[in-house]
Nucleic acid binder design. Structure first.
Length: 217
DNA sequence: CAGTGCCC
DNA sequence: GTAC
C-alpha cells in the first residue's frame, strides 16, 4: 500500500476538509490503494455474500452488506448489534485485511485520533437508488474511538448533521478514494447517504462501496 | 427500543 | 414528523 501518501508533502490542507470540530474529509486518501481494496472486497464477498438485511421495524434496507474483522454489524427483528459470526454461514467473518486496518489507522491518525484500533469493518454496497437515512452510529461500546469511512466507486452525497436528528445537515460529495473520519465531539453526529445517482464507474460499474471501520467492543 | 425506514 |  502507499502509506507514504499520508506523509507526502502534498497531503495537506487542500486534500483535507474540516466538516466541523472532530470531523474531516481526506480527499483521495484511498485512491492509490483502491484497486487492491476492491479486490479484497471481492474476496470477502465470495466467502460471505452481500445480504439485504431488515431493520427491527421490518423494512428491507436498500444497501447490501457484508463484514470483515472480529466483529460485524448486523440487523434483524431482534435489533442492531455486532457479532463475531455471519448469521447466514454461522462462521466467523473473514479476517480484516492488513491493508484495510493499516489504511484506517493511518486515516484516523491523520484526523487526530492516534489510538484507533478497529475490530469491525462493515462493507456496504450501494446500487443505483440505494440510500442510508440519517442515523447515529451508537452501537459501539466506546465513543472515544472514531469512525473511519472509505468511499469507492460511484460518487454519493453524504449528509452530515448534528447531535439531533432535526439539526441542519451539510451535504458533502464523496468520490472514489475519499476517506471521512469523525470522532471526539463529532462522534455521535447524525449522518446518511442520499439516493445513489445513476452512473458508471470504471472500477465498480453501477455500484458504490463503503468501508466503515469501528471499534465495536 | 428500533428512525441504518417510511410517508406526506 | 413519526407507527404500534
Amino acid at each position: 500500500m502507499t502509506l507514504d501518501l499520508f506523509d507526502h508533502p502534498d497531503f495537506h490542507p487542500s486534500w483535507r476538509e474540516e466538516l466541523c470540530p472532530g470531523a474531516v474529509v481526506l480527499r483521495g486518501a484511498a485512491l492509490a490503494d483502491s484497486r487492491e481494496l476492491l479486490k479484497a472486497i471481492d474476496n470477502i464477498a465470495i466467502q460471505v455474500p452481500f445480504q439485504y438485511r431488515a431493520t427491527p421495524g421490518g423494512y428491507a434496507m436498500s444497501v447490501a452488506m457484508t463484514n470483515c474483522g472480529d466483529l460485524g454489524w448486523v440487523t434483524d427483528q431482534q435489533g442492531y448489534r455486532y457479532q463475531p459470526t455471519s448469521p447466514e454461514t454461522l462462521r466467523q467473518w473473514p479476517a480484516m485485511p492488513d491493508l484495510f486496518r493499516t489504511l484506517a489507522i493511518h486515516a484516523a491518525r491523520e484526523a487526530g485520533f492516534s489510538d484507533f484500533m478497529p475490530d469491525a469493518c462493515l462493507i456496504n454496497r450501494y446500487q443505483i437508488g440505494a440510500k442510508m437515512s440519517l442515523h447515529q452510529d451508537k452501537d459501539e461500546e466506546d465513543f472515544g474511538q472514531p469512525i473511519v469511512s472509505i468511499s469507492l466507486g460511484l460518487p454519493a452525497v453524504f449528509q452530515f448533521g448534528g447531535l439531533e436528528r432535526s439539526d441542519k445537515t451539510q451535504r458533502v460529495n464523496l468520490t472514489h478514494g475519499d476517506i471521512v473520519v469523525w470522532g471526539g465531539p463529532a462522534r455521535l453526529r447524525y449522518h446518511g447517504i442520499l439516493p445513489l445517482k445513476a452512473g458508471e464507474h470504471s472500477l465498480t460499474g453501477q455500484y458504490r462501496f463503503n468501508l466503515t471501520f469501528r471499534k465495536a467492543h
